[in-house]
Nucleic acid binder design. Sequence first.
RNA 1: GCGGGAGUGGCGGAACUGGCAGACGCACUAGACUUAGGAUCUAGCGGGUAACCGUGCAGGUUCAAUUCCUGUCUCCCGCACCA
Length: 830
Amino acid sequence: MNESYRPADIEKKWQSVWEQNESFRTAAADDREKYYILEMFPYPSGKLHIGHVRNYSIGDVVARYKKMCGYNVLHPMGWDSFGMPAENAAIKNNADPRQWTLDNIDVMRGQLKELGLSYDWDREIATCLPDYYRWTQKLFLIMYEKGLAYKRKAAVNWCDECNTVLANEQVLDGKCWRCDSVVEKKALEQWFLKITDYADRLIDDLQKLTGWPERVRTMQENWIGRSVGAEVEFYSDKHQEAIKVFTTRPDTLFGVTYLVLAAEHPLVERLIKGKRNVKALRTFINDTRAMTEMDRTATDTEKTGIFTGEYVLHPLSGAKIPVWIANYVLADYGTGAVMGVPAHDARDWEFAKKYLLPIQQVISDESSALAVLRWTGAYCGGGELINSGEFDGIDNEIVKENIIKALENIGKGTARTNYRLRDWLISRQRYWGAPIPIVYCPVCGVVPVPDEQLPVVLPENVQFTSGSVSPLATSEQFVNCNCPKCGTAARREIDTMDTFICSSWYYLRYTDPKNTEEMFSRAASDYWMPVDQYIGGIEHAVLHLLYSRFIVKVLHDCGYVSVDEPFKNLLTQGMVIKDGSKMSKSKGNVVSPDEIIEKFGADTARLFILFAAPPERDLDWNEQGVEGAFRFISRVWRIAAHYQATCIAGVNADYDLATFSALDKDLRRKLHVTTKKVTEDIGDRFNFNTAISAVMELVNAIYAYKELEEQGKAQMPPAFCRELFSVLIRLLAPLTPYFAEELWQELISSDSVHAVNWPKFDASALVADEIEIAVQVNGKLRDKIVVATGSTAEQQNAIAMQLARVIEALAGKTPKKVINVPGKLINIVG
RNA sequence: GCGGGAGUGGCGGAACUGGCAGACGCACUAGACUUAGGAUCUAGCGGGUAACCGUGCAGGUUCAAUUCCUGUCUCCCGCACCA
């Protein structure tokens, strides 16, 4: 073998060998335990980003490790290939979005192959191809038939830059998730998916996901935002219609001193009609509506309001309650109206103080009855009720139910749960997406496209105008069709689906990617699902991961899959940082994977990424660290080359431990200790950084042994040499696959290292003849002793007591007690 | 404001169930080899002359605390006038 490590030749060679041998083709279902490992598939933007490299390197280590451990592994890859960039390229450079996308896929597939990732390319999918989106359309129809897809006019998020509407989840800080421009509200008729029907299950089942990071579960819980409370109706003497409010604090009902409506509340127009100050009212309403969403919902925006001149009656006490309109009430949460309880709500307190509204305390804070006059803010804690008629004296938590019951008895209220989660707006006024399979017939109305007419194929002859209407509208051949029911001339839906629908079920398609009859077979999905380990970025915590959970629950309810959660374990890998900030084109700190591979090889790139930080933490990219990884691989190469002959001499040989010197035994123990450590770090903890450091220690130990050999103090037994390298190479196989394969061929066997078993460690080989024990006096380290492994605590303690440093530290005192932690330390307490 | 996570050498990080703090690597220093070294191998490398002191800070529990408890500060992330 070569004197020095030259990755370029090695990596190209094995890449083509693996490809020819179809080394990573998924096996059919067999009696091995299955393991489905998945990394979030990329959008084919054109080039692999270093963040992708990190994501896929982590997944590949696990996939290769599990395969060596004897699992039947599914490790697929594909393309989330519908989306705006392709369309923007079309508008800008007159490119064909389809060709642009497919070209990018070709480039990126090549890059993934260069990285040596063990994907089953036979299962590759691309969401933009008809044989995939046909089934995305089917998914839509399943939802439609179940009543979970509906069209309605609503105030929706509109991104003027992207010329399309957005789901709530795609608006971050009032800005578009993709282009960062400010999102406006527009009243449009759009398709929605009823994810709110699943709100409770999506929250409750989070408890099952014990293999998910706490962080992600909490984020989803917050996003769904369940609040339990009551809806209360306030009637006036004049009108029959009540004003409904939602509250989580029905216990404070007797503390209501006013009611507030959002400026958009449907009753507002009627309430202000004919009022003396109608001009002022209308000005206020218009001004409030004109405020941007951002300004209105900022916590520090000053609360403003105006009295309508109208009153309602308290449902239980009958008191006259003034009705106000204010800027701090959200129109689209709850009922768009709230009850004002200034004594026990910070916002109401602020509002009441400003407009001199009465403050009525109804929950005792255990101070005197008049103390409320001296309060500087609302009391939001618990306590017994006061000033609440028959409910006085009852604990506020307990009384909630009593008050709801009292309201129910007189028909003026009911228990109610509200969610922050909104239905998923899925229409997009864009071209490069899956067409919504719906036809509008003048006779039959809304008609779903029948299964046998799927896919509804994207037209190619469209105009990429930058208007607010979908480009599909410009294709007459597409738009004009006949009603599938009655044959009358009809028009197709022109919007496409949010690409997050495409990506919400792709992991199911991988289980049966070539099925032309159904989305996937029940047998295939039952065998492979759930995904055992999912790996991806935290940015999808409430987007893709929530949508996917929703879709699986729907498919479960409709009998398509057995599981009701898609991803058993989730690993959210950290970002790649350079010079203190996330790598991005705008910052100019992007490192191209191609350059790294060209300079050092894929194995070095992978090793550095895995070594520099634990997977969940952000990773600081630094060139010197990359060189360090390269240096380590080269170091292994040289020591392997040095021992190649000895190793080969050890074929078919056996060794007798009795003939081993203490140095031989030490090295053998190190080998087994390392095997144990690497097995646990990769298999149980996903701590690749410590797995690698353990291998580095082993390699250092081999170098130290070699040094002793050169001094004539040791001689490597050939059979052991073979065991040593056979194990070392296998430990490296998941981490640096090309390098390990090359060394395996040179030193061990012509079979692939990736098809052999993961090494096992021998528990008896872990035990040393002698162990070192730390000796403390009063918890402070004073000395260390080396004792025989089998020695008793008494023997060890006796030795420790004789140590000069111990005697000195004790200064003549008799120890009160001696604590002996087996095999670790002795603490002498004086 | 609410929720989640994190603070350890010059740097990335390790210490998994309370048991020798700083593994492993980077950077740095010295030596060897060498015409040469930005290659390689070897050794050193938290602070302090030392006793000792050191895991954000202040307490506590314990024979023993990076680890457990109480309080507190800082940073990152998510949600945020959600009634």
